[in-house]
Design a protein around this nucleic acid. Sequence first.
DNA 1: TTGGTATTGATAATCATTGTCAATAAGCAA
DNA 2: TTGCTTATTGACAATGATTATCAATACCAA
Lengths: 136, 136
Amino acid sequence: MTAAPKPRQTRQRTEILSALAAAGDFRSAQQWHDVLRHESSTVGLATVYRALQSLAESGEVDAVVTDSGETLYRRCEAGEEHHHHLRCRRCGAAEEIDVPDFEDWAAKLARKHGYSSLDHTVEITGLCTVCARSSD
Amino acid sequence: MTAAPKPRQTRQRTEILSALAAAGDFRSAQQWHDVLRHESSTVGLATVYRALQSLAESGEVDAVVTDSGETLYRRCEAGEEHHHHLRCRRCGAAEEIDVPDFEDWAAKLARKHGYSSLDHTVEITGLCTVCARSSD
DNA sequence: TTGGTATTGATAATCATTGTCAATAAGCAA
DNA sequence: TTGCTTATTGACAATGATTATCAATACCAA
Ligand SMILES: [Zn+2]
Ligand SMILES: [Zn+2]
Ligand SMILES: [Zn+2]
Ligand SMILES: [Zn+2]
């Protein structure tokens, strides 16, 4: 129940949000930083890391962890509602997907095993049409 | 279709497999290395990393990536068959779970979106009975 | 406008994981 | 069993993403 410590509206945060809104794919903090730099922004890398992290916690952006441990972020259509992705592991493109009944099913199953404080990850990765074509 | 380059049966690999067989929970490479050291084994850390990695690729052990990017390994009951987990994020305990029809459903959905070379992650985490009790 | 404080950013520090490479030891043939 | 070829090992350096520092800056409530 910690009161929401609302972040200040700063130039940097605004720029970062804009970048996220402009491109809809999943990218790492470093990649977003590059994007901003190319748009002649002067945001620092550490700031990008902090902002994305904070935005992900508040649910304003989605974060996924790749198999190699990198964290990717993207601003989603679905807003702050919980949802899952079908994502291209090559280019970061992603579709929001609906996994019918999964939440309830998971909760029931976990309860049966005595687990509490649940959380879950359901991500499907593959190659999108474009990347599949250009990969051979 | 690359021919299977079978690994040599070495003392180190045997020791690592034994450790994995003895304890059934998810642990990081470093943790398994600690375990082995306490059992007066002399395996090197790099070797543990390499072995676990190779075992994971061949499907003999399961690997999951935590939110913080660490990779955890465990020897599973289900053998080399593909399956999913309900895992305690505190102690590494895990149950094998069956997610009915998920594979087929995912394949169908992805095809609909034009994605190929599919892969997926379905992991449920929580606190097991023991850890829930001792966490307040 | 102004003071208190959150945010910034350049940089150093962390830390899991991977690369290096000489020494060692499987596994195979004779 | 004895070599020989070559994969494997392990101590250590190197990488690379992320986090911590901390003085300078800029929100924003009063
Ligand atoms: Zn999304
Ligand atoms: Zn793609
Ligand atoms: Zn398993
Ligand atoms: Zn537990």
